[in-house]
Design a protein around this nucleic acid. Structure first.
Lengths: 190, 190
DNA sequence: TCTCGCATGTAATGTGTTACATGATTTA
DNA sequence: TAAATCATGTAACACATTACATGCGAGA
């Protein structure tokens, strides 16, 4: 439902071909919306049919294998503008790692540590990438209103990653304390 | 992919009928994995075919409209145990609100305030619910290892909601400062 | 010419959402 | 007995993921 608008937002900032869009989604746009190139091509075609974007005219006939540049049309800008103020309910939560930890708690399975450690590592990588973007694009600059808002969106990603990493650390601490229990508790198990 | 295991985890904690499961997903399980009753029925049938769960025998023939209680089988426990230690990559981010704020930044549309305010309100509600569960089930209790892990999962939800709410506040502050700009900047706009 | 990388796409499958259907039990 | 509620489902659709297909241009 939102991919359509994520693409319109991306094209508002800059016209692009399908693959360029896919790359932008892999990089900067990915910290708030991810999409594969297959999704993007399909959605671009729909947006073109709906008259919200158009292909910029190029020399030569447009064929398979030739890059096609898309730009947003006024109708697309209007649709995006209207959507931005919608009061939609947030997407329901689906966090596989939380399921794992809860299941491991029920099963008494200390092996989850591997899953949590992995998750922590991936999120630490993502955090570094965000912090690098922040340094490169926003830190030590005089930002206008748009720049400050863009930075806030990046900051949301950074906040989420930090929260996640801290939580992983708390779980790992708890797991390790269970493996080396104190003297009071657990004098007779397994 | 994970719904299957979320159901197995739920049935590990307690055998349930389809609708009871749907209710548990609406309440406590919902803070880490959400699912509709239609999904749950479909998945329970698959799990039964795969031999991971079974229906508890009941007096009378099992027919449409009659409650069917499901319990996890040893094969189900094994499958869950194995999955818990999988080092899967986290799900890609898809946050519509971030797209909205970023799009609004590009469009210069202060109307996003409505969307952000709404999102903040919903997340504040969810946070209250989590905090109530924490008070009811975990606070002022002597928790065993399983209890402490269960609480940590709830804490993850609480942390996420708090982070989100703070971020919404930061965005709202920025939006309002743009509507009432200081004297230095913006002496000639619109 | 053969391979590689770029660019655009198709097809199949899986997962989630929405709307509706069916039957049993309770209660006004 | 009629309506509401509980409980289990079916069907159609939308969206996402994975694997693969097609065509072009550059360079070995």
């Amino acid at each position: 439902m939102s991919l359509k608008f994520a693409i319109l937002a991306a094209l508002t900032e800059r016209s692009s071909t399908g693959l360029e869009l896919a790359r932008r989604f892999d990089r900067s746009i990915g910290y708030f919306w991810s999409a594969s190139h297959q999704q993007i091509y399909r959605e671009l075609e729909r947006l073109r049919e709906a008259g919200l974007v158009s292909t910029v005219s190029r020399p030569g006939p447009p064929e398979r294998g030739q890059p096609k540049e898309f730009e947003i049309l006024p109708a697309g800008t209007s649709a995006l503008m209207a959507w931005t103020i919608n009061q939609d309910d947030p997407a329901p939560m689906r966090e596989a790692l939380f399921v794992k930890v809860r299941a491991a708690a029920a099963l008494g399975n200390p092996g989850v540590e591997a899953a949590v450690t992995h998750d922590r590592q991936i999120h630490a990588q993502i955090l570094s990438r965000y912090e690098e973007i922040d340094r490169r694009d926003f830190q030590d600059r005089d930002l206008d209103a748009q720049g400050r808002m863009q930075r806030l969106v990046l900051q949301a990603g950074i906040d989420l990653e930090r929260t996640r990493i801290q939580w992983c650390d708390a779980v790992l601490t708890e797991l390790r304390s269970q493996q080396q229990p104190n003297h009071e508790a657990d004098a007779s198990s397994t």
